[in-house]
């Protein structure tokens, strides 16, 4: 007898596969983008089922939300792009066969995987600079990864900017009504409040810089779409410095700890929690501004 919970998981998994197929087989690009957004939302549900609430928050906001917005923003131009000829039937058959082979190999590996012993990490967790295990891994045990990740994010913004021909602020949404404006006015303070809450909460529960940064980015994108505020250009004034703040702060902390204790990003005893909070604050600003920059470089006014 299958338990109802397992039945739900089976259905969820099957709908993921079905949506993946629908996304690839969609007739129009618009349909493909919308299917992919729905796919991302169901992925977020799967993360909850797998006890990964941090990932669920990030997936719903970044994987489904931001990626969806970026894809939809690129749609108009992409539809006009000239594409190469469709691959022939033999190419398709070969691709299908190799995909099937890959699935069989992966499935065999997953099924025959021997059970793993408990992690040594569990013993180290009480010593970490953050109570929440995922935050402890992100900003203490593997802080190097997070430093390099913020570098990747900044690099993506620089690359996107350097590919743009004109420097111009983004366009508002094509249908931009008073209803949207009043919603944005209503939501803006809530967004800032919940970003702060998520940031503070990250130390001891699911949440943190990623989620807080994305909530702030969403607020900024809504502000640009609703045309409420005079559009701002992140390439001018102090904005680039603010965009870099998370990365610069991270490098400063790495150098400081290197000078203090001899190991980069090895926090001094007692000072870890404060440093982690400081790094998260900088990361939140960098993530939020980078996402806004990536969004606006896709809809610059000079593009038309």
């Amino acid at each position: 007898m299958i338990s109802p919970v397992l039945l739900f998981d089976l259905l969820l998994g099957l709908s993921l596969l079905w949506l993946a197929w629908r996304t690839l087989a969609a007739h129009t690009l618009f349909e493909a983008c919308v299917s992919f957004i729905v796919f991302g939302l169901l992925m977020a549900l799967s993360w909850v089922r797998l006890d990964a609430p941090d990932v669920a928050l990030a997936e719903a906001a970044v994987g489904a939300g931001l990626t969806g917005v970026l894809l939809l923003g690129a749609l108009e131009r992409a539809e006009r792009a000239r594409v190469e000829a469709a691959p022939g039937p033999w190419w398709r058959r070969g691709a299908g066969l190799s995909a099937l082979l890959l699935f069989l190999l992966l499935a065999a590996a997953l099924i025959t995987l021997p059970p793993r012993p408990p992690l040594p990490l569990q013993e180290a967790l009480p010593l970490a600079a953050a109570e929440h295990p995922v935050t402890a891994v992100l900003l203490d045990f593997r802080a190097w990864d997070t430093l390099l990740e913020s570098a990747v994010l900044v690099l993506a913004v620089v690359a996107a900017w350097s590919l743009e021909r004109s420097v111009s602020p983004p366009r508002p949404a094509p249908v931009c009504s008073e209803v949207l404006r009043s919603l944005v006015r209503l939501l803006l303070p809530f967004s800032i409040l919940s970003a702060g809450y998520l940031l503070w909460r990250g130390g001891h529960a699911p949440g943190g810089a990623f989620q807080a940064g994305t909530v702030l980015a969403a607020a900024g994108i809504l502000l640009l779409l609703s045309d409420l505020r005079r559009p701002f250009d992140l390439r001018r004034g102090y904005w680039p410095l603010a965009l870099l703040s998370g990365l610069l702060l991270f490098i400063a902390v790495a150098l400081g700890t290197l000078g203090y204790g001899g190991t980069a990003l090895d926090y001094p005893p007692g000072g870890g929690a404060a440093l982690v909070l400081l790094l998260e604050l900088g990361l939140t600003v960098t993530i939020a501004l980078a996402f806004i920059a990536l969004f606006s470089s896709g809809r610059s006014r000079g593009d038309e």
Binding site: A173, P174, V175, S177, V179, L180, L183, L186
Partner: peptide, 20 residues
Amino acid sequence: LLVMAAGATVAQLVAASHQA
């Protein structure tokens, strides 16, 4: 309450773009 506010706005926007 938040979902209702967002849902109402999105419905209005979809309808407006349909009209346009």
